[in-house]
């Protein structure tokens, strides 16, 4: 483990390791972001509905 490019090359195993980590990170992020966005959407839809009812 010396220079940065060497570190990322991982003795030729770099493409395997990094692609596995990239896919995993994307899927994990999706699983948190998706319900968060849906929650925000629900809050705004309900707020609009209530405003309409109040008028």
């Amino acid at each position: 483990m010396n220079s940065l490019p060497e570190l990322f090359a991982m003795d030729g195993h770099g493409p395997y390791v990094w692609s596995a980590y990239a896919i995993t990170f994307a899927v994990l992020a999706l699983n948190v972001i998706q319900p968060w966005l849906a929650h925000r959407r629900l809050v705004s839809v309900e707020a609009r509905r209530r405003r309409r009812e109040a008028e």
Partner: peptide
């Protein structure tokens, strides 16, 4: 045996 690939 597996080198760096085992980090997965």
């Amino acid at each position: 045996q597996q080198g760096n690939s085992f980090r997965i």
